[in-house]
Design a protein around this nucleic acid. Sequence first.
RNA 1: GGAGAGAUGGCAGAGUGGUUGAAUGCACCGGUCUUGAAAACCGGCAUGGGUUUACGCCCAUCCAGGGUUCGAAUCCCUGUCUCUCCGCCA
Length: 424
Amino acid sequence: MFDIRAIRNNPDIFDKGWARRGLSPQTSEILGLDEKRRSLQTSLQELQARRNDESKKIGEIKKDGGDATGQMQAVSIIKNDIAKMEEEERKIGNDLTTLLSSLPNILGDDVPDGADEEDNKEVHRWGDVKRPSGPDHVDIGEALGLIDFETAAKMSGARFTLLKGDMARMERALSQFFLDTHTQEHGYTEMSVPLLVRDNALYGTGQLPKFAEDLFKDHEMGHWMIPTSEVPLTNIVAEMIVDEEELPMRFTAFTPCFRSEAGSAGKDTRGMLRQHQFYKVEMVGVTTPDKSEDEHERMLTCAETVLKKLDLPFRTVVLCSGDTGFGARKTYDIEVWLPGQETYREISSVSNCWDFQARRMNARCRAKGEKDTRFVHTLNGSGVAVGRALIAVIENYYDPSDGGVFVPEVLKPYMGGLEKIVKG
RNA sequence: GGAGAGAUGGCAGAGUGGUUGAAUGCACCGGUCUUGAAAACCGGCAUGGGUUUACGCCCAUCCAGGGUUCGAAUCCCUGUCUCUCCGCCA
């Protein structure tokens, strides 16, 4: 959502911003609606003032025991006009809101222009690629008898996975390791959050109204399954005015994520890279407006740290204008090396949403002693996707001599000291 | 699933159709007093929007959305949330 006054004052900035996302100019339509609405509002309020005035007089006349029939009829007529005008005003207001809420965030100046992921700019690379190529997690996992797509498909269809034994345990170990690192070393507060949310929560973070088809919904109760715990974690501050002393707030959660993958038919169909359901440890930050860029860099470091501790080679890119998501002002993706694909694949996405979500959620902050409030800035980042981390470990820690998978050093404490996953 | 109670300003808590945007207390801000502080006393203190060069004026908001009425915090309907009791249940 956007500040209509800012659009009034600097329409060019917004049109140029949206042009970077490939959109045609929007502000003339926005401002046309805005002007219409305001002039309607003004005349509506004049009528309301007259109605209030007359009604007050009727009250006085009646109190004195007089006859107010004439005045009552007069107000009755005004009332009809008000009703008509209210409806028109509401309609235009809705049109305006619908238009504004379907427009993406304005990109940061430091976001490179580009059409798609080909144009993302690499920021840096980390780690030695010890296994440039090799079997993928499907071959390794199935040979070990610990990853089973067929059985999962039997009960749930495509894009689901069944993990067994030490493979299931390693998934759990990864999530524990991520959570512990973020809570104990990075200052995040662990949250256990609702996985089903209502429309308004998804509107707040920007998934609705535009991206309903990407989500699973329970039509009976009206709940949506979260596509990421960014939704519940960010909505913690919805409708709140927080003291600026309490900022930054840093939340983390380990949750399943549910995605319909409606637009990605045929994409990444092999293996467990793209599933309808996967686990993720998420980080969310809430800051004052002046601190979000620093927080963004910090959050990126937090996500990179867990990959470094796992000794997984990765590269970090800043997404170009065409690849940056709807609600983000700027996004870093961390891509981990997958020997099975001989390429880097996304394992984390770290975004600064600026005040975009805060406006939609009405999440504000106030400095001590101040009267005025400001919208907070919100950030979110995967820290990191557990399923994809598991893939990365399987493929990078593969031992061709026996088909096993070494357990990364930092995961051993979470796996009872196990050194290696082997065929059982 | 059944029965009932409730939602009012930062908080507590009045108000059941006519100057109620809302008593009172607490908190908060300013002042008087004091060497200083406390106490006491005096004054101020909701939010969003429209309009205005400005002072200001106006509109909306007592959980949300509809309705009744000349007029709604107050009456009616729907939804959301909270609480109590019964049933069921991880």
